[in-house]
Design a protein around this nucleic acid. Structure first.
Lengths: 341, 341
DNA sequence: CAACTTTGTGCAAACGGTTGCATAGCTACC
DNA sequence: GGTAGCTATGCAACCGTTTGCACAAAGTTG
């Protein structure tokens, strides 16, 4: 039969029915008789009919597709969130288009255009590192298109978002370090225009203050939280404060770098220096010692974000007020910080 | 102004031109005068016109979308391949729809239907663990739709595919272990119906034979290559062969599990037992000691696969013969196997 | 200046479905 | 037996673009 795909009108021709009847039969419309429906379904099977979603989407003005923009697709965190998003969307019968901004605002704008042209019904976004203003998202709101931010968000009360309670997680990690006896705790922090990094830093400061420990700006090193930058951070911190006895890092990767430096300098972990990270990367339980870290509920974040978005998509007169959902993190205590039973 | 998106006919009305002229002007068709084009472009700008890709796709029979089916989206390997795919596709002006089979054939079939309904112009697939027969892909070929397998493929000369030379990589790893003085090398293997695992096992056997080392079935343990299964594997191997002095694992994760067992039993790595894995997972350079492993050229695999697919999409009378592309892996020697300078 | 070409534009039919409205054939009721 | 109501189906417009063809106006040629 070559390459031609059976269409609704092929079915109509075969059965001597009109296309509208076929369409209704396929959609199980109540005003079509059971007998006819059966005939149509059988013929559909026989001709291996597959509906053309594009045509339906065009007519209905509903593409059944959601768009996602993430900074990058590799890396444990986003991969897991995407898994949650994809599963959630599929269950609701939606397809997902995924774009990477590569941590680049220009890309992010382009991605946005792409998704808008593809007529997606809603968009999920986690901002790139270099996104400082968010004018490009105005377009989306003008179109009245549902939009949900997750993890890296623009802080504003009139957008919907799903985030982790980074402050809470960081505070717990700090409290734990202090309970383990740490008194001179350093912090490896990330870019402060990102809500997540800012909140982790804020919790670090607050925990120190609440426990009457000194806050010292030179005990904090800000960087982009890569592995090599973690090394540099630790070198710097150790040089200025040879006597530090604990480190709280805004992510696991930088901490892994820092740990290599500590080991090279002969510090015992956790006896001399106790460590806590953030993210619960896969490798955090494979290092020696295993890293204490904060789990970010990645898949749950994805599922929650997509659920929120789908609620907004379904709500026809778009009157739903923006919602912010905050997920609670979980502190995972492992060898890198546990000093006594 | 509300929610209405400007369409081509809005432009036509504004400018007192026909929709066909607008369409041609927007597409820079040669038979439209420059003056008219400029007027149209200006008006498009002014009304913030964005083309409806769905309508164009329907009319042209070209959706500008590619489909990808992967076993899962988390995990370093697939994430990186996807990055390569997404970047390559975007550069060529294509969108990408990503589906996860969750290592489940039934899901895989459903994904396939989804992508076909969405009218993708080509499909990239890496098979799920539970896919043993591939009849469901017949449909794709009947439709004459470009199809490229990558990494986990169906072995058949008449499909296009991009794979790593797993045999070569595994053989190099084995040769390296042997050069380091290992004589009793065990193997942790994966499901043998997967081409990749089969080839790694074959290389293990061949390397032993080529170096006149004994092949012993009890030195091989097959499992699904997860972390806990790696532990079980190593327990078993050690119990039967307390004197083994090397391990080659079909992936890094199982090896990481195995390494924990070895350490618990007091074996020194690499002095007592030298280790080599496969995949170059992120964590492989974060463990203590760092793991020797084989890099899979993930991003390159993605870029290559999508390039091949796009070539097939472009080739109009679909006469391109199926092509198999084999990428060369790279052995990364690290602490877990390096016994002397 | 007739005939022919070129240039720029419009008409209308696709693409493959969905859907409001009309209608034909029955049944049922008073 | 006339009217109302219900059931099952068809007609035709529509979604937003693309594109083959027709055609008017202007330019070119002999």
């Amino acid at each position: 039969m070559s390459t031609h795909r059976a269409s609704i009108s092929d079915l109509a021709a075969q059965l001597n029915l009109s296309v509208s009847t076929i369409s209704r039969a396929l959609n199980d419309h109540p005003s079509i008789s059971d007998a006819t429906k059966r005939r149509v379904w059988d013929m559909a099977q026989q001709l291996n009919y597959q509906p053309n979603q594009l045509a339906a989407a065009l007519r209905k003005g509903r593409s059944n597709t959601l768009g996602v923009i993430v900074p990058h697709i590799d890396g444990h965190f986003f991969a897991l969130v995407l898994k949650g998003i994809e599963n959630g969307a599929n269950q609701a019968g939606f397809n997902v288009m995924i774009c990477q901004s590569n941590e680049n605002v220009v890309h992010e704008k382009k991605n946005l255009d792409t998704l808008l042209n593809a007529q997606v019904e809603g968009i999920l976004v986690s901002l790139s590192l270099t996104t400082k203003d968010v004018k490009h998202f105005e377009d989306v709101r003008r179109r009245d298109l549902p939009l949900v931010f997750f993890d890296r968000i623009m802080e504003s009360p009139d957008v919907s978002a799903v985030v982790l309670d980074d402050y809470q997680g960081a505070y717990q990690a700090m409290q734990h370090l202090i309970e383990q006896g740490c008194r001179r705790i350093a912090h490896i922090g990330g870019p402060q225009h990102l809500n997540i990094c800012k909140n982790r830093y804020r919790a670090y400061l607050d925990a120190l203050r609440d426990h009457n420990l000194e806050q010292d700006a030179s005990m904090v090193y800000f960087c982009d939280l890569t592995l090599p930058e973690g090394k540099v951070a630790m070198e710097n911190l150790l040089n200025q404060h040879p006597d530090l006895d604990g480190v709280f890092s805004a992510n696991d990767l930088a901490l892994a770098g820092g740990m290599q430096v500590l080991r090279a300098r002969g510090r015992r972990i956790p006896q001399d220096v106790a460590l806590a990270g953030f993210s619960n990367e896969l490798f955090a339980s494979l290092t020696e010692p295993m890293l204490t870290t904060v789990d970010q509920r990645c898949e749950e974040m994805g599922r929650t974000a997509v659920k929120l978005l789908l609620d907004m998509v379904a709500e026809q007169p778009r009157k739903l007020p923006p919602r912010q959902i905050v997920l609670q993190p979980e502190l995972l205590v492992r060898e890198s910080s546990q000093r006594h039973e």
